[in-house]
Simulated scan of single mutants.
Amino acid sequence: IGFLYLALLFFIIVDIADTPGKFRRMLIVYSFSAIIAALAGLSGFIHYLISRNTFGNPLLFFYKAEATLLFFPRIKSFFYTPNMFVTFAHIGLVTIACLYFLLNKKSNTKVLKILLFASSIIISVAVFLAGSQCLSGVLLTIFMLLFLFKGRTAAVLRYVVFIVTFLVMIFAVFTTIWMIYPLEVNNDFSNKFVDVRVNYAYSHHIIPSIYGFLMFQEHPFLGVGIGTFTALYPKYIKDEIEFFSSSRLQVSPDRILDPHNTYTGMLTEGGVFGFLAMIALLFAFIKMLLPHGEKNDSPVSSCLLAGLLGYLFNAFFIDVMTMRHFWIFLAFIFIFYKKRKEISYEANT
């Protein structure tokens, strides 16, 4: 039912935006929504800086297990988790970039470009303060978008984004290693023995993948069924996993987990056939954005491609196929593919 709803949403958007003008207005609406969400999240963060208190602040996400890892509460804005906010804002950055290149040459583009640039900065800051692993995919998208701009400033920004991406990766490894690959050290002083092992009970990133592969081994071709991971994973919990009632993550059969990985999730729920179908679908959308032989191919296609590739990178951390805004983004790609010439012509006149 969930995928039918997402497919219906996709076709409704495609049907509504049947002209270049409607397509542009949809991009404006989405960009404006992302800006509002970012401003709301930043206002919540500013309130925290003033009050130094996260209690009763619905715009921030505070998790005790992360208190020793992050130096600040994470922005989630109006969304349930910071990851959801980041993935929504990610597309907002792409739609803003598209609008930048769709500005009509007869309009007052200088003021509009400044507003679009300022909006992208606001969203980027809010995304950074969300403290999400998905920041990696966002930075990848920004890095690719900067290649569409010429000049020394754009070149410098590309280097800056590359360095920031590298530093973010290092920071992520050193600060979240206990959640991704949590080591537990036991000292046996009587026998002069030190035992180092992985304590999976503290990890909500590696556990879903372990369970997913166990399910896949039992149902390799058709999977366990779309949307059934949460209901089935308790059956695969190993006896050696310890259960804790502490400030860290408690892994128990009644805890709701999702695959946290689009690719392993589809292998688990859809099997080999479902996985190949998903890859074929995603490749089809990538192909829509590749140059089609036009001498002056629209940079909008490059913006959309940068966003899609960044999203597919983040798919290693989250399940993007169940997100409404990802299917909205796919609808934008399909609309541009169908109306590429009309949209590009209108922007250049």
Results as ranks from 00 to 15, higher is better:
72 F>H: 15
346 E>F: 04
301 S>A: 15
1 I>T: 12
302 S>A: 15
301 S>G: 13
206 I>A: 12
217 Q>G: 15
32 F>V: 14
10 F>H: 04
212 G>Q: 06
26 M>Q: 06
175 T>W: 00
282 L>F: 14
296 N>K: 12
105 K>H: 08
137 G>T: 04
184 E>M: 07
33 S>P: 03
280 A>P: 05
135 L>I: 14
1 I>V: 12
202 Y>S: 07
77 S>A: 15
145 L>S: 01
42 L>C: 04
22 K>Q: 07
267 L>R: 05
305 L>I: 03
4 L>K: 08
126 A>R: 01
336 F>V: 01
166 F>M: 13
152 R>K: 15
255 R>S: 10
340 R>K: 15
216 F>N: 01
217 Q>S: 12
141 T>P: 01
104 N>Q: 14
312 L>N: 08
302 S>N: 12
112 L>K: 15
301 S>P: 02
260 H>E: 05
125 V>R: 00
339 K>H: 14
87 T>H: 10
34 A>H: 01
319 D>F: 09
63 Y>A: 13
312 L>D: 11
198 V>H: 10
255 R>K: 15
102 L>H: 02
96 I>R: 05
152 R>P: 00
104 N>C: 07
187 N>R: 09
73 P>M: 06
272 V>Q: 02
68 T>I: 08
156 V>A: 13
26 M>C: 12
78 F>N: 10
291 P>V: 07
25 R>I: 13
235 K>C: 02
276 L>V: 12
54 T>P: 03
181 Y>G: 01
263 Y>T: 03
244 F>W: 05
293 G>A: 06
190 S>Q: 13
109 T>P: 01
291 P>K: 08
125 V>K: 01
23 F>K: 02
72 F>G: 03
305 L>Q: 02
190 S>P: 00
2 G>I: 10
169 M>E: 05
243 F>E: 15
22 K>S: 06
33 S>N: 10
41 G>R: 00
50 I>C: 01
202 Y>I: 00
34 A>D: 07
245 S>V: 09
56 G>F: 05
114 I>W: 06
188 D>G: 01
11 F>I: 10
110 K>F: 12
275 F>E: 08
215 M>L: 09
153 T>K: 13
287 K>Q: 11
236 Y>S: 09
187 N>F: 14
264 T>M: 14
169 M>C: 11
328 I>P: 00
185 V>S: 05
101 F>K: 08
143 F>E: 00
188 D>P: 00
117 F>Q: 10
138 V>W: 03
227 G>F: 07
65 A>L: 08
246 S>N: 13
86 V>L: 10
76 K>N: 04
330 L>C: 05
67 A>V: 11
263 Y>L: 02
66 E>T: 09
115 L>E: 07
255 R>C: 03
246 S>F: 04
240 E>W: 11
11 F>E: 06
66 E>I: 04
88 F>P: 00
78 F>H: 11
198 V>M: 12
292 H>R: 15
295 K>F: 05
224 V>P: 01
256 I>M: 10
287 K>W: 10
242 E>R: 12
308 L>A: 03
136 S>V: 14
348 N>V: 11
249 L>V: 13
138 V>I: 09
32 F>E: 09
46 I>Q: 06
83 N>V: 03
80 Y>W: 05
